[in-house]
Amino acid sequence: MSYAIIGFGKMGQALAKAFARSGMEVSVASTRDPESFASAAAAIGPGVMPKTLTDAVKADTIFLAVRFESHRDVANALRTWRGKTVIDVTNAYGVPPEELGGQPSSKVVGQAFAGARLVKGFNHLVAAVLGQDPAVQGGRRVVFLASDDDGAAAEIAALAENLGFSPIKLGGLSEGGLLVQARGHSWGQLIFKDLVKFN
C-alpha cells in the first residue's frame, strides 16, 4: 500500500509528521515544484518524499490536504480515481451551502474524484494539534472518520491506528460526516474537539 499527501501546508506537514513518527513512507506534493519544499520534507523525516502532483497521485491512498476551493484542481490530475482511496481533510468554511447544492462538502469532493472511495477524516483538529504525538498520558488522540463505504472506513481506521491515533467511525457522510464539516460560517459539532481515548 502506498500513501501520498496532496497539499504541503500546515495540515499536510502535520500528517507527514505522523507518518515519519510511525516510520512509514509517504509521498508529499503540492502545486509547487517539489524542490521548493524538499528541505521542509527532509526536516520532517527521511521517509517523507517530495514528488510532483502527477507522481504523487499514483499512490493507492491519498490525503487531500488542500484548501477546499482547490480540490477540483487535484481531481483533474487523473481521468479516473477508480481503485484509490481519498481521505478528505478539507474544510469548506466560508463556502455558502448553496454553492454545495445543499450537500455535505465531502459529497461534493467525492463527485470530483470520480471512482474513488472517499473517507472524511483527520480534518477536525488544528494542524498544531494534529502534528503532535498522538500518545497522550497513556491514551491516544482521537480522529473521526466518516464514509459511505464501510470497507474504505475500516481501511483508513487501520491506517489511523498504525499512525498512533484512535479512530472513531461516525457513519455515513450525510449523517456523522456533518459533525466534522463546516457549512457556510458554522462548524460541525465535533470540529476542534481534541479528545483522547483510554483503553
Rank of each mutant, 00 (worst) to 15 (best):
A160E: 06
A116Q: 04
G83S: 08
A16W: 05
V66E: 00
Q181H: 11
Y93M: 07
G172Y: 00
D88H: 00
D133T: 01
V142S: 03
S39D: 15
L15K: 08
Q132F: 00
T54L: 11
D133A: 06
F165V: 00
R183S: 15
S22D: 13
V28C: 06
K51T: 09
T85Q: 05
T85L: 11
L130W: 02
P97S: 05
D194Q: 14
K51N: 11
G115P: 04
T54A: 15
N123V: 07
N123T: 07
S147F: 00
S174I: 13
H71T: 02
S147N: 09
P34E: 12
A116W: 02
G139Q: 06
R117P: 04
A127P: 04
K51A: 15
S186R: 12
P50R: 09
S39K: 14
G102S: 08
N162T: 13
S105Y: 03
T52F: 08
A152W: 04
N76Y: 02
S166W: 10
V57H: 06
G121L: 06
G45W: 07
F8H: 12
S39R: 15
V136L: 12
G102T: 09
D148P: 10
A65P: 02
V196A: 09
A4R: 03
F144L: 12
A38E: 10
K58E: 15
A77W: 08
A4W: 04
A29I: 03
G184P: 11
Q111E: 15
A160H: 00
N76S: 15
L53W: 08
F198T: 14
D73T: 12
N123Y: 03
M11S: 14
S36W: 11
P34M: 11
E175R: 12
F19C: 06
I87E: 06
S30L: 11
V108Q: 04
D133R: 11
P50F: 00
G23T: 08
S186A: 11
S174Q: 14
G138Y: 05
T54H: 14
G172L: 02
F144V: 01
L163D: 01
V95M: 03
G115W: 05
A40H: 06
G177F: 10
S27I: 05
Q111W: 02
S106F: 01
L64E: 04
E155L: 13
A182N: 12
A42Y: 01
S186F: 02
G138I: 10
G139P: 03
H185F: 12
A75R: 01
F192C: 02
F8L: 13
K17N: 13
E35V: 13
G45H: 08
G102N: 07
L163R: 04
G101F: 03
S105A: 15
E99V: 01
A112Q: 01
T90P: 07
F19Q: 07
S36K: 15
